[in-house]
Design a protein around this nucleic acid. Sequence first.
DNA 1: TGTTATTTCGCAACATTATTGCTTATATGG
DNA 2: CCATATAAGCAATAATGTTGCGAAATAACA
Lengths: 164, 164
Amino acid sequence: MRKQELAKLDRTDLRILEALQHNGGLTNQQLAETVGLSPSPCSRRVQKLEAAGIILKRETVLDARKLGLDLTVIIQISMDRHTPERFANFEEKVASYPEVQQCYLVTGQEADYLLKVVVPDIDGYQHFLLNKITRIEGVSGVHSSFVMRRVVDTAALPLNYVET
Amino acid sequence: MRKQELAKLDRTDLRILEALQHNGGLTNQQLAETVGLSPSPCSRRVQKLEAAGIILKRETVLDARKLGLDLTVIIQISMDRHTPERFANFEEKVASYPEVQQCYLVTGQEADYLLKVVVPDIDGYQHFLLNKITRIEGVSGVHSSFVMRRVVDTAALPLNYVET
DNA sequence: TGTTATTTCGCAACATTATTGCTTATATGG
DNA sequence: CCATATAAGCAATAATGTTGCGAAATAACA
């Protein structure tokens, strides 16, 4: 995995990305006005950013509470054997569970994987843990932290670090 | 904070939400075809879902690597005193840092807060930690886990649990 | 610094898409 | 089984996105 080639972006591109990060529902006209451009070059820039893969995808964020999904859990998982096969199998299983919003392979002695899962309630979580996670081969340790308050939750990146 | 009143949604609403979750860039026409509806009732349903707050917002997801943001870190933070003032101050500070994508107040003895932050590299992380996080009053313990691989990363909720 | 080449802009025309009014159909409840 | 309410589809309208092209600005080079 070679070092990613950085695209050359000017301030206008960054302003576009910044605006879209926080409000993906903006129309091209609104976006154009926000960044001080007429609609046509604005649209062309967005197309370029999509073609370059800098804009990965659009997501629609739903209200979990209003859908009866009241429990979010952060799970730390450790594996007994660190073989590529175990890891591949674990990742494949985990990726197939709709409850899993995030799964990262991380450094650290306490855990190999960090997961964020969403379920309706404790019962649902117990079921998920016992019937799905702990049944995956190689899972040796599980530690759960329950989310009490969501202070920050966004996909927005710190674009202030990006060179122009 | 009383129990959230669940909206009554039929299968069509759920199909709309499911489609939009994974592809917020769908046009209303594409969405209508996906869920087997003509464009007008489809548009009206989406408007209702937005008005009801079930659709919270649209986000545009960017490629961190292509922007030179190569390091994602999960930070566990513990506080020395669990007073509301300390917590409020911490949360206010944390919410103002663009590097912070997520911050949750969680249960557990190891940590009070779990953060996910994005920075360009180790240097940037060190700077963030020393000049921002550890300077917040009350922060007594910090443990960092570095993300090596992103297995799953989505905002999509498990709508299979939602009653129709 | 003058000149050329390249890029990006904005206008206007065109194409596509979203939205609204209204009628018809489909459920719901008495 | 009829009355009422809810949602669907069609067609017209409104709004929005997109493209070609000439002008302007910017950058590159002599």
